[in-house]
């Protein structure tokens, strides 16, 4: 009995502490929401702290629709567009490649895998300027294509899909080949369904990354109307923009979709992420 009681206490302590940590880690979101309900000049005057705003207002949310004819929603839908197209392209291209590297034995495969691992170690910042100049040559500056194209085949995602595919059985493909199925059909009808958990995890991870991307969109996009959310909000803070009222409300609105997406898929996501096997 004594041992059982001790275990129960231990369980209670562990769980309470972790839950408390989980709640504590969410406090910045509380501050964000408080900020979105406070007039911007109050935030400047007092900072963002744990105190109910004196003049609670939803005018910041109204400003999202009013400021410069609702420029915020332009940012928002630019982000939706860029995120959707990039994520779709990433899923198609990297799952293809990962499948090719994971399920086939062919000349040059090991070389490609080593090359892939090397590309993962190149810091992206060294490539900013050359890719920028390349886009300039092709007239892709200030277009959404300019941020989508370079992001379509990330090595990390290929590696993830490859690790996943290595673990899948090969006999299905052999059997289908004997039945006369083509290679494309084997991939789309047999292996794609088996890779669903990997697709789920990669969709959230890629979507999150693109939705939150900042440096590259800020460099490539020039016109205010073309901006995505992160550079758009930061520009609104700048002396040129100076639209402080939309910043916190806009932040809340930009976090909401991604958190909802995550909460609905969190189990599939975290499981998929761990299945892919980060094996050092």
């Amino acid at each position: 009995m004594g041992l059982q009681g001790k275990r129960r206490i231990l369980t209670a302590i562990n769980t309470t502490m972790l839950l408390a940590l989980g709640v504590l880690i969410l406090t910045p979101f509380l501050f964000m929401i408080l900020g979105s309900l406070t007039p911007p000049r109050d935030i400047f005057a007092h900072g963002l702290g744990l105190r109910l705003p004196e003049n609670v207002t939803i005018s910041n949310y109204e400003a999202l629709f009013v400021v410069r004819d609702g420029i915020y929603w332009r940012f928002f839908f630019n982000s939706v567009f860029v995120t959707a197209v990039t994520t779709a392209a990433v899923l198609v291209f990297t799952s293809m490649t990962g499948y090719g590297l994971g399920q086939y034995v062919f000349k040059g495969r090991n070389f490609l895998i080593i090359l892939l691992l090397c590309t993962m170690m190149v810091p992206g910042t060294i490539l900013l300027l050359p890719i920028f100049r390349m886009l300039m040559t092709f007239g892709l500056i200030d277009t959404h294509a300019g941020i989508i194209l370079p992001a379509m085949v990330p090595s990390f995602a290929i590696f993830f899909f490859r690790q996943f595919c290595v673990g899948l059985p090969k006999d299905f493909a052999e059997a289908a080949r004997i039945d006369g199925a083509g290679e494309t059909r084997i991939f789309t009808q047999i292996y794609v369904p088996m890779m669903m958990p990997a697709y789920g995890a990669m969709a959230i991870l890629t979507g999150m990354g693109v939705w939150n991307d900042f440096l590259w969109p800020m460099i490539v996009l020039r016109t205010t109307e073309m901006l995505t959310i992160a550079p758009g909000l930061l520009m609104s803070m700048s002396p040129y923009g100076n639209q402080w009222d939309i910043i916190f409300a806009g932040s809340v609105m930009s976090v909401v979709p991604i958190v909802i997406l995550f909460l609905f898929n969190q189990r599939a996501f975290i499981d998929g992420l761990t299945v892919g096997g980060v094996k050092g």
């Binding site: 969410l26 910045p28 939150n212």
Partner: peptide
Amino acid sequence: LIRSLLFIPVLTSTIIAGIVFQHM
């Protein structure tokens, strides 16, 4: 539940997190 709670911060962009923390 604990895993999800601890994971949520990384869903926000560094820009938005940065703006909120700047004022905190």
